[in-house]
């Protein structure tokens, strides 16, 4: 379903060592490892939020994407609708390894709290003081159909004034984020064709 009255207000891609917003590369880094890359991005954007370093990789990825899009966003009723393929598997494995040690199992509370993918939306909500609707979906691949339907429904029903949507996937060092804000005014029409085109942007 497409909805001509809603628009893509802005979008952000984080992949291949680059952070871009609305097609413009804002930051790039040669770091091969995600932790080094995302730390460099954090410093580049002069993000002052020490709790960032306590997050797992998935939350850092989602947080940075939201930071790029919501840093100047004054709309408090912004719903969050995110999705990915790997859920929180990267952190799940760390937790499993910690509790499986034969020499003594000690679960880390700081790791355990991230063994759900929707925790990343909690981090975004805390940072941007959002008390809005949120949902996290697991798909085999980016699914613009369900995301657009869901976002439109939130806007039509009045449950949100804007929606931060997208794909934020992290597993085994590989990362891919495509986040976008849907609003009543914007730069591009909100439809599955446009979303697919933007997602496939290199």
């Amino acid at each position: 379903m497409s909805s001509p009255e809603y628009y893509i207000k802005s979008y952000c891609l984080i992949r291949d060592g680059k952070v871009s917003k609305n097609g413009e590369i804002l930051f790039s880094d040669d770091s091969e490892e995600f932790p080094a890359f995302i730390k460099s991005a954090y410093k580049h954007f002069e993000t002052d939020y020490s709790k960032f370093f306590k997050m797992d990789n998935l939350s850092k990825l989602a947080f940075m994407g939201a930071e790029v899009l919501l840093c100047e966003n004054e709309e408090q009723n912004t719903a969050l609708v995110l999705s990915n393929r790997a859920s929180s598997l990267d952190t799940d494995r760390k937790h499993q390894a910690a509790i499986s040690k034969e020499s003594g199992a000690f679960a880390s509370p700081a790791v355990f709290v991230y063994t759900l993918p929707n925790i990343c939306m909690g981090e975004i909500s805390i940072r941007h003081k959002l008390y809005s609707e949120n949902s996290f979906f697991i798909f085999a691949e980016f699914n613009p159909y369900l995301l657009s339907d869901y976002a439109n429904d939130l806007l039509i029903s009045g449950k949100a004034n804007e929606v931060l949507c997208g794909w934020v996937d992290y597993d085994k060092g590989k990362y891919d984020a495509f986040l976008y804000v849907i609003a009543k005014k914007g730069m591009l029409p909100h439809n599955t064709g446009e979303l697919t085109k933007l997602y496939r942007t290199k």
């Binding site: 020490s50 306590k54 003594g104 000690f106 679960a107 880390s108 509370p109 700081a110 709290v113």
Partner: peptide, 16 residues
């Protein structure tokens, strides 16, 4: 500025 999760980590640290 530690938080409640940090407190749990400290409890685990004492044990481990």
């Amino acid at each position: 500025g530690l938080d409640s999760i940090d407190a749990l980590e400290l409890i685990v640290m004492l044990d481990k």
